[in-house]
Every structure is written in structure tokens, then in C-alpha cells.
């Protein structure tokens, strides 16, 4: 099992001009690592970060889009895997941080822990590039080429529960405006 913050730190250090769409618990860590106008956070629409990422990837075909999703979030919108695999955006990387919890409302276990596998869902949906990591050294060794290759790519990351801390205050409307302006 890995620490979410440490994984996202590696991604943030390798990031150049990619758009990053984060949701739920990933927002807590990513907001400590980045203040780029190319960041966008999906809160209040749980499950839809990857759909927003798909729209961005279609609108910005010359730029990569990184989605930082959660397992509980993805389970709310599993059809997104089929949609993305059907559209085949070559600039979309879908990370799923799998803590097996609804972390924000208090660490409630997801349904079906140990019985489902989201990477297997992704493969079955039609993703041809699917990776799974549960060791930090393995992740750090392979993530560079994964970020550079053509997608769509699914990356499942087994992580521990994050620290108990308040959700950051985010100005979502301003963030949307900043991203839109940055992409003009």
C-alpha cells in the first residue's frame, strides 16, 4: 500500500503542461502540491471527474489531461470507462486512487471490497493500457513512460487512508475561470 500524497508528489514533479482534474480526497493532497491554473477540481459532482476530463481531452487535443479519481467516485460512474474506451482519447490518463473507503465522510468501507477490481473493469471496458501499482518504488520507476505514452490509459493505485484533515477551501468558480483563460 502507498501514500497518496507521495504518489501525487511524483506526478506533480513530472508534470509539465498537462491539465489536471482532481476530485474528492485527491484534492486535499494535490492542492498542497500545485497551484497551477491548469488544475481543476470536481467537487459537488462525485463520479464525474473523468467525464470532465474526457470533455477537456476532446477540446484540447494537443495537451494531455490527467484525471486523479477515487475508487468510490469511479464506482458512482462506472460507465465512464466504457465511454472513454469507446472515444479513445489518446491524451487522457485516468488515475484511480484506491483507498477502498469513502474517506471524506469518515472512512466508510466501499461495498464489495476484495471482490471487485477496477483495473479489470477498465480492461473489460476496452482500455488497452491498464496499469496497477501497490508498491511505491515500482510506481516511481514506471510512471514516467506511462505519462508520456499515448492513451487512453488507466492506472489503479492502491493507497492508504489519508490523514484526517479538513477539506481545503477552494474557489471553484474562480478555478474554472482560470482554467478556461489559461487554455485560450
Amino acid at each position: 500500500m502507498m501514500q497518496r500524497y507521495e504518489l501525487l508528489k511524483v506526478i506533480s514533479e513530472m508534470r509539465t503542461d498537462e491539465i489536471v482534474v482532481a476530485t474528492m480526497s485527491a484534492i486535499k493532497d494535490w492542492s498542497k502540491l500545485s497551484s497551477s491554473p491548469l488544475d481543476f477540481y470536481v467537487a459537488g459532482a462525485m463520479g464525474y471527474a473523468s467525464s470532465v476530463g474526457l470533455g477537456l481531452s476532446l477540446a484540447q487535443t494537443s495537451r494531455k489531461v490527467i484525471v486523479l479519481d477515487g475508487d468510490g467516485s469511479l464506482l458512482m460512474n462506472l460507465g465512464t470507462l466504457v465511454t472513454i474506451a469507446a472515444v479513445q482519447p489518446d491524451n487522457l490518463i485516468h488515475f484511480v486512487l484506491e483507498n477502498q473507503l469513502y474517506e471524506i465522510p469518515g472512512g466508510i468501507p466501499l461495498p464489495g471490497i476484495g471482490k471487485h477490481n477496477l483495473a479489470a473493469f477498465a480492461r473489460a471496458a476496452g482500455f488497452s493500457k491498464v496499469y496497477e501499482f501497490d508498491q511505491f518504488t515500482d510506481f516511481r520507476e514506471h510512471i514516467g513512460p506511462i505519462l508520456r505514452e499515448s492513451g487512453p490509459t488507466f492506472v489503479g493505485l492502491r493507497v492508504n487512508r489519508g490523514p484526517s484533515e479538513p477539506f481545503p477551501a477552494i474557489r471553484y468558480v474562480e478555478m474554472a475561470r482560470n482554467l478556461k483563460n489559461a487554455l485560450k
Partner: peptide
Amino acid sequence: VIQVCAEGEAIAVCAGMHLGGKRG
């Protein structure tokens, strides 16, 4: 035409397009 699996996706996809400067 981007055929999605559920209606909520369609709204979020078009929101992403809007952020990216395209109209869906």
C-alpha cells in the same frame, strides 16, 4: 457525436469541453 452511457456523463463532458474552449 459522443455517445455516453448515462446522462450525467453528457453534462460533465460538455462542461469539460466548455472549459477547454469548445462547444458541445
